[in-house]
């Protein structure tokens, strides 16, 4: 790669610069690793040891916290729900965003400017800031406590960004490819299905990973919309473990570990895609 060539010729690095670099990096390293390591070993500590000394390593290592957390926290079905919400949302968002991006970039229309900025406004509104309106509307429509009541907002709140990502990619598909297909007699829907979707695989992965992550960590909407434990997700289940009149650090920590593992796997497997998603985020302007 090109960037290896110039590195060999390194400029003089002033000492204060190096020191500041290491100090800031140390802050992040300590803040990221220390709580995670602490969380890790504390989750294997019996409750009475945690209460007696928060910092110490476990004397009697135990997996009881995990067993309890899994059973009492019902993480089995919470995981299933989280997966349902994330997967369905991701599939719908990918399909709708690409089709919209295709229409916006490749079908000439005087409405495009209007619609594109209309959808762009969605980048400014989040679930948290409109939870009160959403809740009231969902209540009115009888959508609280239903899968649909979660899925529809999830799709809507993820679509703005996905359309933006998709448009930046679809725009770069050469017009000639599309024109050629049109001349062969294909209509736009066929072009979308046969040309745009297959060609967009890289951005589809990015949109999918990004949407999946956003859904996985979302908390406020499900918390507000679900009184029925059967549709709750991992994040909500986790927050509810902080019981009102009873407590237990041990299984709270074990549950935190259980709930965080999927994110760690997602990160390790799709680091590049996540980074691309986030880095394109700020370019929306």
């Amino acid at each position: 790669m090109a960037d290896h060539e110039w590195k060999s010729g390194r400029a003089r690095v002033p000492l204060p610069f190096t020191i500041v670099s290491y100090v800031v990096l140390a802050f992040f390293t300590v803040f990221t690793l220390f709580p995670l390591i602490w969380l890790g070993y504390t989750s294997f500590k019996p409750e009475q040891e945690i209460v007696a000394n928060m910092v110490a390593l476990p004397v009697n290592w135990t997996v009881r916290n995990y067993v309890q957390a899994w059973q009492l926290g019902e993480f089995g079905h919470l995981f299933v729900n989280s997966l349902i919400f994330c997967v369905v949302t991701t599939v719908v968002v990918v399909l709708l965003s690409l089709s919209a991006a295709f229409a916006f970039t490749k079908i000439p229309s005087r409405w495009t400017r209007l619609w594109f900025s209309f959808i762009g406004l969605g980048l400014l509104v989040t679930i948290s800031s409109s939870i009160v309106p959403l809740f009231i509307a969902a209540n009115y429509l009888g959508l609280t406590n239903t899968y649909l009541g979660i899925l529809i907002p999830y799709v809507a709140f993820n679509i703005s960004f996905a359309v933006y990502l998709a448009a930046s990619f679809v725009r770069s598909i050469p017009n000639e490819v599309i024109e050629a297909a049109k001349i062969d007699g294909a209509n736009y829907l066929q072009v979308y299905r046969l040309i745009v979707l297959p060609m967009s695989r890289p951005i589809i992965t990015t949109i999918a990973i990004f949407t999946f992550h956003a859904c996985w960590v979302e908390y406020v909407l499900v918390y507000m919309m679900s009184s029925d434990s059967s549709i709750r997700t991992v994040q909500v289940g986790l927050s509810l473990l902080k019981g009102q009149l009873s407590f237990n650090f041990g299984f709270l920590f074990a549950a935190v570990v259980i709930a965080s593992l999927p994110l760690l796997i997602l990160y390790l497997a799709f680091r590049k895609h996540l980074q691309t998603g986030f880095s394109l985020g700020a370019l929306k302007g």
Binding site: L96, S99, A103, A156
Partner: peptide, 16 residues
Amino acid sequence: YALLAGPAIVIYGLVI
């Protein structure tokens, strides 16, 4: 255009 862009615009408009 309506078929391709419509669903995204409608769902977004209705919810947000």
